[in-house]
């Protein structure tokens, strides 16, 4: 097998591994909305405020997952 071929294969392996980055974002978003549901159950009158904070946190957690996606794109199209 040629060396160039090997690198091409490794690129796909790396891109596949990059999808594990979504694991962190998934855990984060699950935690955020789980806790938000808990908070709303305890104090339903604060729902609007809790939901706003939860959305904000979810977006920050989502960004980490998106970084994995950006890394994958870089692997495919730049490197």
């Amino acid at each position: 097998m040629e060396a160039g071929m090997d690198l091409e294969v490794l690129k796909f392996v790396g891109a596949g591994l990059m999808t594990f980055g979504m694991l962190g974002a998934a855990v984060g978003i699950g935690l955020i909305f789980g806790k938000a549901a808990e908070g709303i159950a305890r104090n339903p009158s604060a729902e609007a405020k809790i939901f706003k904070v939860a959305i904000f946190g979810a977006v920050l957690a989502e960004l980490m997952g998106l970084f994995a996606f950006v890394g994958m794109m870089l692997l495919f199209f730049v490197l």
Partner: peptide, 13 residues
């Protein structure tokens, strides 16, 4: 950087 990557990556994905 985070502001722009978030928007672009979310739309692309």
């Amino acid at each position: 950087v985070s502001l722009s990557i978030r928007l672009a990556a979310a739309m692309t994905a």
